[in-house]
Design a protein around this nucleic acid. Sequence first.
DNA 1: TTGTACGCGTTATCAG
DNA 2: CTGATAACGCGTACAA
Lengths: 334, 334
Amino acid sequence: MKKITIADVAKHANISKSTVSQYLNNRFDYMGEKTKERIAQSIRELDYKPNIVARSLKQKTTFTIGVIVANMLHVFSTQVLRAIEDVCHAQDYHVIVCNSDDDPKKEKKYIEMLHAKQVDGLIVFPTGENKELYEGMVNEQFPLLFMDRFVEGLNIDSFLIENEKAAKIAVDHFVSKGYENIAILTKELLKNVTPRVERVQGYKKALKAHGIEVAEKFIIGEEVEHIQEKLKEVFSLPTPPRAIIAGNDLVLIQILQFAKENEMNIPEDLGIIGIDEVSFASIYSPPLTTISYPSYEMGKDAAELLLKKIRKEENSMSSEIHRYQPELIERRSC
Amino acid sequence: MKKITIADVAKHANISKSTVSQYLNNRFDYMGEKTKERIAQSIRELDYKPNIVARSLKQKTTFTIGVIVANMLHVFSTQVLRAIEDVCHAQDYHVIVCNSDDDPKKEKKYIEMLHAKQVDGLIVFPTGENKELYEGMVNEQFPLLFMDRFVEGLNIDSFLIENEKAAKIAVDHFVSKGYENIAILTKELLKNVTPRVERVQGYKKALKAHGIEVAEKFIIGEEVEHIQEKLKEVFSLPTPPRAIIAGNDLVLIQILQFAKENEMNIPEDLGIIGIDEVSFASIYSPPLTTISYPSYEMGKDAAELLLKKIRKEENSMSSEIHRYQPELIERRSC
DNA sequence: TTGTACGCGTTATCAG
DNA sequence: CTGATAACGCGTACAA
């Protein structure tokens, strides 16, 4: 059961490989009707399928891109991926998906392997730890885009949420409702991941703009496993928070759990605003006020830009930061 | 800025391509130390990267597999994908991800393209509408696995949840708690997708086993957009349901919304069991009783089997149905 | 140990 | 309109 190649088809149709190749590439400017027919016939009879690897070798293009996310279990990543895949499908590209798990080594290995596999471009949620590597690809003019995270001084198109604004919207809303002692909770602050640092930054700025003093004790960063203890600690303070911003969906669930276990009334005892839309926001009791942003659109725009750069319709050298606006969805938790 | 090939390295090191190739493939059984050093040196200086496409053409293997899911926005798909990616990463394979959107045409196009791209194997959440195509691949001995959905009479390894049992567990639990008028809600029943039909089947069987008559009006299938109206209709019946099984997470949210809007008390007015674990199950009021199953494990096992078949460590001809056990997580909604 | 020559499947070029 | 022939980059007998 040997694979049939273009040579077999040629032999079967009694013509040369080149003619068959032309046929396959729709270059029948001057091809005889009868020849066309014979080729079509042979292809059908032999059930010939072109070998795209061979074509890629010759054409130096694979019609495949790579996407390296931190972790595709995150809802945001999933939505971005889905958008990318949709755009690629529409333009006959395929997508190789990888999880870096925020591990620079893993990220590096993936980038190098995908590059070696000759993918035509890459969309990365960067760990930020492989600057030289990123830089090398830019110099090579390799189509590369960053998503969700920014890496300083690198001249690479980046698609980001207006994170400071997201935090500001939350603070403003709390203030307008008369809340005091507003806290913010995110995952560990150690890692300087763009969304986290920007959100905290925006939180601070917004407080200052309202003439409220920033209290470090209200800026909480903790690994998910230890959030409950941490929360307990913070809410045992003489002046505990009366309002809290959840830095993302996971952290929001932790807060809700804590509030529930301690029988705190929302929004009376504690106001809550979650950054990230969650599936259960509108059915929760009370319905949760959240801040959402256009994940799908971000993925779509990124994919479209990448494909343009791949086709050189867009200058692969110029680069900018694309910012997306967060939006308050007011419900009842604040 | 020309690409460096193995020939350039050879020239630079003043030896032949074959020697370099051997070096790259760790076949230095009899290679001179000095030669090895020279090669390493040249590779570094020229920053040579092997072209994997060329290697694939020669070796007829791409170290890439394809996964076609119905829609990667579904939590189950995401978890399965993540597991597959983990296994593949550990064995240096890459994963191309595609969304069929339950469209047989799209599925067909993907399968054919991926095949042409010479992926080494495929894991598919089948639409079920491309039997001939699936069959062709089996005959070709192409490594192919099905996930979540079963296609009759096809001799292809399939990884499925014990769906009937999941429904049975729910029914049994309701009955043991003294509930009557137990309904089941799924998305449209028209499409004969394995999980849906098996769950309804299991529901019926379980009721019968308890000597309870099956009422067609309690078997509800509806598109997500119209679920609210449908629910309104069903709960206006003379004897409305007192308990309801949510066929999946999306449908569960719809039920919760309906219950909330109509101020129904859970579990007093209405008992609820959701098939599919959801992130907010334990923080909801009341905490939701759900039935979960090992998605990650399913993806992991599938990927491992696929890679074995690819390496011919496993007979690609033999095939079986792998069933996974659902588990009741009792909380307070029933 | 190393070098030569050829194959992998397709496409591009250039005669005819 | 069609057909040789040479790439594309790598791997590998086989020869030396």
